[in-house]
Design a protein around this nucleic acid. Structure first.
Lengths: 577, 577
DNA sequence: GCGTTGCCACCTAGGTGGAAAGGT
DNA sequence: ACCTTTCCACCTAGGTGGCAACGC
């Protein structure tokens, strides 16, 4: 077997310049603002002073309302709300007709659950940048948006779509010496509207809920004359992706080149940590490093092989004690899956073009992202990576607080492999409400329990709210705010060996059908969707006479998009409007 | 620019052994049974004496009936039947509401048009083999089934599916010394039923008709315990793929692991030239060579670069005069598209498990497949390839006749680039009807005209019919048989530079958005289907404010599956049952 | 003998950031 | 000065047939 590996250390000059001393030096400049405790979640700030969500004045706010869901089931495997409120039609037809392992009631609220929110938050804390290019090789987003939805009417047909809206009407530039994004003027003229309609659309609620819905095929461009349906954005602007759930009857006006229609059956969700700045070349080298470290397609730019030696180990070692050099986490260790992740509230917006006037942001602090955790869980691996992203610069006008799990808590969770599903504790959040501070519920200590749920207070017609960072409640704290956010986390399977973001690294396809294999070829239920997901035909009939996945396995491997298994997720119940 | 080409002539020993003298010698053994006239369609036999379609006794014949369509429009660009018979519901809603460049009447018959039938026929003439493997790296079919459908109700939702049924209840083995497949016993026990549901299902008739429907993602396996939904087949058996069109209401029982349901709204179509024998390793080296020559993924095994020199040119040259050495055709010449192709009747079957009792086969004889044509069309290229496949062994009990176009006819067609769409003449066919000989209509000389159409006589409940080869009528002959087959060919665009089978070889993505680019990313209408096709959402709204494809371009590049542009196709109107 | 399996090199197809060149 | 464009090496992901080993 000829090992065709390229020699390590073929890093480019530029990358080298950044990787070691440069990084250490750069780190020192920004240090000491909450990143000193390796074993705790220490992310208290965001590095981009201008990223607070603001309304575009030229968009109309749609009315929004929120109510609260509460879920108090302790130790349950999944937290599913069963609220009586049900503005949706029908769905009384017997669930037994549908061969689904879930029979989530038809009366739930719709929840949209961001998968991989850990990674998103790590980017967000640095200041996410997304490359946009002219035609030809238009770029995907990395990370890609991946969501899980619950609370749909299983029999209702829906379109799922994504658009990307401006966060404000500013143009930005990156100031290298301060590593910050600064306002550089007003936004450029609007671009043609584009909507990425998920390729599985339309499909039944049952189908959508059975899978992780990935938007990884979505591509961005700065070519306003783009003729390939990619999403057109301006460079050096801030944007917010939104997920739209559109009942089929209400989707008659849905078009890839029109704004998402407004209406009763249309709901929009956004996740504050997915805000990004468009660039044609990366500005912040920390973003570059994190992308390289996490995007499998950029593996060629990594400066480390699987078994790092010599200088690199030294660097890693250093990074362990001085966080923020590398971005690897336990997700990079095959076979060690992340036992839960911070939650991120989806901000429900009524359909239409309005940006929600209230953006609620969560700040990282995954209990599993600390280097110490790595060593504890897998001491034979070098897990030095300091969360560079957790080092952040302070934001003027924002009150910050920190919050973290103890290492003991974190480790004890991972050390209990008996539970293949549990809900992770909520994580610190910051919520922006126009002029008002909102308190956040928290219940971090109760591993394997489902914390109370809450909903963001949606204040319509508030075009330019001030952003307030909210201090989360201490562990065990009960949900207490009518306008706070909750985070409930489920779907994580401790036994899953697939913890890497969005990609399957199984090396032997025959040892076991990997979830992706099962997923992307014909779907878990033997559907036939090359895009990795299925349309609603799969609910037509149960699998018969074929051993493919027992209910347990199916439960284990229930995601079917490319992104596949959930290693982290953030979830929020959203209200029908 | 570093040209990373591997040196030519890295052909394996085995391949070398086959390539030149071996081939010539082997050819001599089988020669002289109808392959002496290079310029005419000379395929009068099939090389597999046992491949005649027979019924499986263990399947129930469904009732089938055929009637005749006649299309005499000369010089029309497309031949579309407008028969009043219309068992479909609704479809009176104004076509103007649908932004389609086609407004084919809602009262048409459903036609299924095999794309790339030339290639299929070339394989068929040798004796198509398909590799099947155990789990892990299950193989696709090559060629892949790709069809174009017309005559659907634009507003009706349909599932499109494919299954693969045994041609007979025999097991085969390949006899190397005679290069023939021989019956080796009875078929193995049945395998679990599997259906490949096209990933775009369900979609509207309008959506289906707008695209070439490719089944290239379909995979085959010999693993009866397969859990990935691949189609399970026995090795060393003969199979026939079928395309099913299922109205959505009738698709409630549709499942990847159940036989396709029987019913009013379910129609099945099969193309005799797509019959194949399953193998775990190729038996006939001519098949291997043709696969290697035509499947881009096998390019690594090709012994020739783009500009062949020396020995290879010599071999090519030899092959030109002694057909059957190579399999290249003008399709291998970029920029030269095939001006029409032999038609292949789709055999309509009522839904269900029955194999049609009547299989009508077409035997090659593409006017464009002859070496002489190649030289005429592009004399600066070496187009030596002798249609090895045209060399066939005689089949006992079968009456054979030959039929062909003149070179002049053929060339004059190609030389008229003014017509970007035309119907190709019908090609010789053989029809098998139990114990009965059927005459075949023929009208080969009328290029650019649409020959009369016909339908196979379907005789239900005839489990093991004898196969009779039918002599086609001479050019200009009127349609005369109530049980003959017709072939009409359209959809070929002479200006298309994309003649290669199913793949886009455009090298500069920026020079022009290739149809595949446009197609596979978001669809021609800016849809968003990573699988390369679109679901019915694209009909929701016309593209607005975006210049993507003018109607002309859209007409030119109207296929959106991976297979994309049609270089050859065969079409038959099929009757609703 | 003969068919099957597993692994392999070699492809296609396309997603990365780097870096130089171009543009304003 | 700053941003954009273009081309590139280097990846992931997966589809080829070859081939040696295996199994019966």
């Amino acid at each position: 077997m000829a090992e065709k590996r390229r020699s390590p250390c073929t890093m480019s000059l530029k990358a080298h310049a950044f990787s070691v001393e440069a990084l250490i030096g750069a780190e020192k400049k920004r240090k000491l603002e909450g990143d000193s405790q390796d074993c705790f979640e220490e992310v208290n700030e965001v590095s981009n002073p201008n990223e607070s969500p603001q309304h575009r004045a030229d968009r109309t706010s749609a009315s929004e309302r929120g109510s609260e869901n509460e879920c108090t089931s302790d130790g349950s495997h999944e937290c599913e709300d069963q609220l009586p409120e049900s503005p949706r039609p029908s769905s009384l037809s017997a669930a037994s007709l549908i061969p689904s392992q879930r029979d989530s009631g038809a009366t739930e609220e719709i929840r949209v659950d961001l998968q991989g929110s850990d990674l998103w938050k790590r980017f967000h804390e640095i200041g996410t940048e997304m490359i946009i290019t002219k035609a030809g090789s238009n770029r995907r987003m990395f990370p890609a948006m991946r969501v899980k939805i619950t609370g749909l009417d299983p029999h209702q047909q829906y379109y799922i779509a994504m658009d990307i809206i401006p966060v404000d009407n500013k143009r930005y530039r990156y100031v290298y010496h301060s590593s910050k994004w600064m306002v550089a003027g007003n936004a450029d003229s609007p671009v043609p509207p584009r909507v990425y309609i998920h390729p599985d659309s339309p499909a039944s609620g049952e189908t959508w809920m059975r899978q992780v819905i990935s938007f990884d095929k979505l591509k961005l461009t700065n070519n306003e004359l783009d003729d390939q349906g990619h999403i057109i954005l301006h460079s050096m602007h801030k944007y917010q992706p939104r997920v739209h759930i559109i009942r089929k009857e209400c989707g008659e006006d849905l078009s890839p080149v029109k704004s998402v229609p407004v209406g009763e059956g249309v709901k929009a969700f956004s996740f504050p940590e997915t805000v990004f700045t468009t660039v044609t070349a990366y500005q912040n080298q920390q973003i570059t490093r994190l992308k390289i470290d996490r995007n499998p397609f950029a593996k060629g730019f990594r400066d480390s092989g699987r078994n790092r030696m010599g200088l690199e180990a030294l660097v890693e070692s250093y990074a362990f004690w001085r966080p923020s050099l590398r971005t690897l986490t336990f997700e990079d260790i095959p076979g060690i899956a992340k036992p839960g992740s911070p939650g991120s509230p989806a901000i429900l917006q009524t359909a239409g073009n309005a940006v929600s006037s209230t953006h609620t942001h969560l700040l990282s602090s995954s209990p599993c992202s600390s280097p110490a955790f790595h060593l504890g869980a897998n001491s034979s691996q070098l897990c030095s990576l300091g969360p560079a992203e957790y080092t952040a610069c302070s934001r003027s006008g924002l009150a910050l607080n920190r919050y973290g799990n103890t290492l003991a808590e974190t480790y004890s969770r991972l050390a209990n492999p008996a539970s293949d599903t549990f809900t992770a504790p909520r994580t610190p959040s910051y919520a922006g409400v126009s002029g008002a501070s909102v308190s956040m519920p928290g219940s971090d200590g109760d591993a394997f329990s489902c914390p109370q749920t809450g909903l963001p207070l949606q204040i319509p017609g508030m075009p330019s709210p001030q952003l307030q960072y909210i201090m989360p409640s201490p562990p065990g704290n009960a949900f207490s705010a009518n306008q706070g956010h909750h985070g409930t986390y489920n779907s994580f399977r401790l036994h899953s060996p697939y913890g890497l973001y969005g990609y399957n690294f199984s090396t032997s396809p025959r040892l076991a059908a990997s979830p992706e294999k099962i997923a992307s070829s014909q779907g878990s239920f033997l559907g036939s969707s090359p895009s990795g997901t299925m349309t609603d035909r799969q609910m037509l009939s149960p699998m018969e006479g074929v051993h493919i996945l027992g209910s347990g396995q199916q439960n284990l491997f229930d995601s079917r998009t490319l992104g596949s298994l959930t290693s982290t997720s953030s979830q929020i119940p959203a209200h029908m409007v």
